[in-house]
């Protein structure tokens, strides 16, 4: 399983698990970051952190610290 924080820009994966502090986990769930969903790393901020991802058809930003808790499978480059 690959952490979302280890993604290269342009990579796409399927979320397998979301860990971490309940409050943050709940927030991520509320925003649609749930197991089984496709997640795409769109870009990194100019200083490398936070990240911008596309999920469920919209753009979401989160820090590497939060992305570390998102574990994914089937990671590949978006054609």
């Amino acid at each position: 399983m690959k952490k979302l924080s280890d993604f290269f820009v342009g990579e796409i994966g399927v979320i397998a698990k979301v860990d971490g502090e309940p409050k943050i986990k709940r927030r991520l769930f509320d925003m649609g970051v749930t197991p089984g969903t496709e997640v795409f790393l769109r870009k990194k901020a100019p200083l490398g952190d936070p990240l911008e991802i596309t999920i469920r058809g919209y753009e979401l930003t989160l820090r590497k610290a939060e992305a570390e808790r998102v574990l994914t499978t089937e990671v590949k480059r978006n054609a």
Partner: peptide
Amino acid sequence: SPFIMELPT
């Protein structure tokens, strides 16, 4: 605090 925010179109 964590930074989880929607980026609007």
